[in-house]
């Protein structure tokens, strides 16, 4: 007698995703939806997508979903949650969206302790627009707008959003994870569960930052991009739970 032990999460639409080969986005979406399914939340959740590669999510996510102006997901999500407290509200945002154009919205939703869960995909560049410098771009990293590499004098330093938000009093859960191998994927899923559980418990603002990849704009193969995360990204963006109240 066979037993089905693995399947496509019910919260995903039944179509083929169009993300670049090797990109972590589909895996992150799958993790989030599998947790939603496990918690039986698919019928009472809404995902608020930012702009950029994250907006492609609209074609893959099967739960209620809305597009928002670039950088505004945390403001939009805060309002949805306050108008409809029984709804589980999550955002899905990239580094440009959350840490640059939407920095004020992110900081202030976190500072208000709005009871939402933020999923933040940090791949150190603007993927959708062709790989420009992001607030999280590593020092020395070449992007299409830092052709000679990011340098401190011109561009400042990478922003560490978990650490920044950890200076605030209100957030209840902050964690940084990655998806480079199975043990890390399991930890990432655990962090997503924690974030959702914090929202279910009414504890306030939770965020999971995914240290992600961008094989296409990094000019690396999927395999090489994973090695790049290990060698370059993780020393700059250390993994772990920064806050768990």
């Amino acid at each position: 007698m066979e037993e089905k032990i693995y399947k496509r999460p019910a919260g995903l639409q039944d179509n083929i995703n169009g993300y670049c080969p090797g990109c972590f986005h589909p895996g992150i979406g799958k993790l989030i939806m599998s947790v939603m399914e496990e918690f039986d939340l698919l019928e009472r959740s809404v995902m608020v997508d930012g702009i950029g590669c994250v907006a492609s999510n609209m074609s893959y996510i099967g739960i209620d979903e809305l597009n928002t102006p670039h950088g505004r997901p945390c403001a939009v999500a805060s309002a949805i949650k306050r108008c409809s407290p029984e709804t589980i509200v999550v955002t899905y945002q990239g580094d440009g969206d959350l840490a640059s154009i939407g920095l004020a919205e992110t900081m202030m939703a976190a500072n208000r302790g709005d009871n939402i869960s933020v999923f933040f995909v940090n791949n150190a560049n603007y993927g959708m627009t062709g790989g420009q410098m992001a607030p999280t771009t590593l020092m020395g990293m070449k992007t299409s707008t830092t052709p000679y590499g990011r340098n401190a004098q011109e561009h400042g330093y990478p922003m560490h959003m978990c650490e920044v938000l950890n200076t605030l009093t209100a957030p209840s859960y902050l964690a940084r994870v990655t998806l480079i191998d199975v043990p890390h994927i399991k930890k990432a899923r655990e962090a997503v569960k924690q974030a959702i559980q914090h929202q279910l418990d009414g504890k306030g603002f939770s965020m999971v930052e995914f240290v992600s990849n961008c094989p296409t704009n990094w000019g690396l193969t999927p395999q090489e991009s994973i090695q790049f995360i290990k060698d370059k990204m993780l020393p700059e963006f250390p993994l772990g739970e920064f806050r768990n109240r």
Binding site: V46, T68, A75, I80, T87, A104
Partner: peptide, 15 residues
């Protein structure tokens, strides 16, 4: 900017 985005979110709930 954020206030109008909040209005967008509220509007999406049918209130």
């Amino acid at each position: 900017t954020a206030s109008a985005a909040m209005l967008y979110g509220a509007g999406c709930t049918g209130i």
